[in-house]
Design a binder for these strands. Structure first.
Lengths: 237, 237
DNA sequence: GAGTGGTCTAGACCACGTA
DNA sequence: ACGTGGTCTAGACCACTCA
């Protein structure tokens, strides 16, 4: 844990506790240098983290303001999450029903998305995720078998992400996501209890590892009234 | 224009020109310090910009790699754009049809989104944007009249964003966006040529100015087969 | 072990908002 | 005019990858 992360954590905590209330000004960076006994560059990096999280906003010549922080709704999940549903749904009852699980050769689309050749086998996984007893999302995933080793039904029933991180020791570098609307397909109608006219919200994603390899291409489909995605965008100064 | 922005621009250009090809390593930061005659911190900030754009990826102990950069499709637009359609559709024929334009008192939802009181009037604007002759998106916007002064039909036919930046001299700080799917409403059916069963993709956004005020709450609705949104997400090191 | 990028410092100057 | 945050430097040490 770096110094600037520690400082960001402390200040974030103070904001959440109301020690620095919404719309008030943070202490200026020189005062924070005195308090934390670090250089101003380090304070600045901590401020940057909080800025990117949408908690504060800095203006040259004025100061750094605490922003309103109850912006994100309850039912909406950030389009920028990696932990998977297990973490997003913490405290709620999450079950996974495995609709399909097999190994196969990738078709052209999957080859392109995973940037692999036709003879590199992939896992094909279709899971229905059920939250508090209600069908929530269908995930269609493809993962190369030479990166995600020894995937089992047991892992699929829990969290793939935990397995990748903790068992395989792989770290994520980022993801490219695309969000669109669609008509329901046969899986949606059967497992999400969709009518023929119920729109579907689909999030496609490709996940990159730190070494540049692609570990996952997946499509997450939900009924229009069950899920939405939020994106916080901060313009850098 | 800061030094690190200039350096990022130069290196970005070299990547696009193939001087630094995909999958090759960039010169190490010390060599770049020599070339550009700046401190290493400045080089690092330039690298950060390119990293956030998804052009390169740095690994401690190894180096900085050039990534595959033709990831984003043609029909998909980043969920992180401010310039509005006029810029996104550059080179294509963009027309705006004004469906509704008036001043009114905000209802509860609009009060909440714009963080204003019930007696602060707002502009209510409904525009159909037409690209290359095809209806593309309906934008329902609300803007406080005390921030966006003297809005006219003339401005609406061109670009509101240009007016805000250039005429009013206001700068954006960021935006909070939410993406969902929905059933078509009467406007969609009439102007987007939707059938009753055609899903709609809706992007809601609230745009913040640098002084913390909210200038715009808008809902952009498109037919499911016309538009999608992409989000690039890079995990910071 | 050699070489890489990540963090951190102390101090300087500059651009901007407020009054 | 003053105080604020943004940029930049020169140099140091550390964490990590790879041969």
């Amino acid at each position: 844990m770096t110094k600037y992360e520690q400082i960001a954590d402390i200040i974030r905590k103070r904001i959440k506790e109301g020690i620095y209330p919404t719309d008030s000004w943070l202490p200026n960076q020189v005062d924070l240098v005195d308090e934390f006994q670090v250089s101003r560059v380090t304070i600045k990096k901590a401020m940057n983290i909080l800025t990117m999280e949408g908690l504060v906003y800095s203006q040259r010549g004025a100061g750094t303001r605490v922003l309103n922080n109850d912006l994100l709704g309850v039912d909406n999940y950030s389009a920028k999450d990696y932990e998977g549903l297990s973490v997003q749904m913490k405290g709620r009852d999450l079950k996974s029903h495995i609709i399909y699980f097999n190994v196969e050769f990738p078709d052209e689309l999957v080859q392109k998305r995973l940037m692999i050749s036709a003879h590199q086998p992939v896992y094909k996984i279709i899971r229905l995720r059920i939250v508090d007893g209600n069908p929530y999302v269908i995930e269609h995933s493809f993962m190369p078998t030479n990166i995600v080793l020894n995937l089992t039904v047991d892992v699929l029933k829990k969290s793939i992400y935990d397995y990748i991180h903790q068992e395989l020791g792989l770290g994520f570098a980022g993801a490219l996501r695309n969000i669109k609307a669609d008509r329901p397909d046969d899986y949606d109608k059967e497992f999400l209890k969709c009518g023929d006219c119920d729109p579907i919200l689909e999030l496609d994603q490709v996940i990159y590892l730190k070494d540049g390899k692609i570990i996952d291409y997946s499509r997450s489909r939900s009924r229009f009234d069950q899920r939405s995605y939020s994106v916080l965008d901060v313009i850098d100064n």
